[in-house]
Design a protein around this nucleic acid. Structure first.
Length: 218
DNA sequence: GACCAGGCACATC
DNA sequence: GATGTGCATGGT
């Protein structure tokens, strides 16, 4: 497996940051909103998630206890624009039940738990996998956990920095061991990778003028 | 109308 | 352990 150096990873970041600037992630007003958004955005365009969150706010239920009190059908209807609304209503419910029973719906208490333990707890919730858990830890909790997603995989593979069978944990370990443990850096790095995959490269099939072009493609 | 989007759990082999 | 499949709306 190719082993990108710390310098290369830093260079990739500098190039993206220079080209596209700060991404201002995560777009959510409170840690709780970020956590809800992390579940709703699973395999879904963020624009659709925004509509769902707007519905929740409009109904005045974007609150741990109020959301948990909603019947399944009501919750599913409100989050309908985010797609997969039945399964996501269940996933939100399982998260909200855990959040209530384990932390009494308190964000402050939740993030008093150590990073490694909290990640294990989140992964044990039905509907929360590695990316959702890590998004919650980094973007809602401000904890040093690097978020890996489909774009991260694609871009790193394209530039020959990982093997095509690299796992989530391997890719995460790559960033976490070769970059300094810096929440602001990891926040921006992941957001820029998503921008690179979503907005930049998608609009340019061969990605002409890609800021990463000086880095050989695999 | 096809194809994709900031995954995950579960079935089947 | 690897591979396949269901879940669903809204934008291009």
């Amino acid at each position: 497996m190719p082993r990108p150096t710390p310098e290369l990873l830093k260079d990739v970041f500098r190039r993206m940051k220079k080209a596209w600037g700060p991404q201002h992630w995560w777009p959510g007003e409170t840690p709780f909103e970020v956590m809800v958004g992390a579940i709703l955005t699973q395999n879904t365009a963020w624009t659709n998630v925004e509509k769902a969150i707007a519905n929740l706010k409009g109904a005045g239920v974007l609150d741990p206890e109020k959301l948990r009190d909603l019947p399944h059908s009501t919750l599913a209807t409100l989050i309908r624009p985010a797609g997969y609304y039945n399964i996501k209503a269940k996933r939100l419910r399982s998260f909200l039940d855990w959040f209530h029973e384990r932390y009494e719906g308190s964000v402050e208490r939740m993030f008093e738990t150590s990073l490694a333990s909290l990640r294990e707890e989140l992964l044990a919730v039905k509907g929360i996998g590695p990316e959702t858990a890590d998004s919650i830890l980094l973007y809602a909790g401000g904890l040093p956990k690097f978020v890996v997603d489909a774009y991260t995989y694609r871009i790193l593979l394209r530039h020959g920095m990982i093997a095509d069978d690299a796992t989530y944990e391997e890719i995460q370990e790559l960033f976490e061991t070769k970059l300094t443990s810096d929440v602001a850096l990891w926040n921006e790095y992941h957001a820029l990778l998503v921008h690179a995959g979503k907005d930049h490269c998608k609009s340019r099939p061969k990605c002409e003028g890609c800021p990463l072009d000086p880095i050989p493609r695999g």
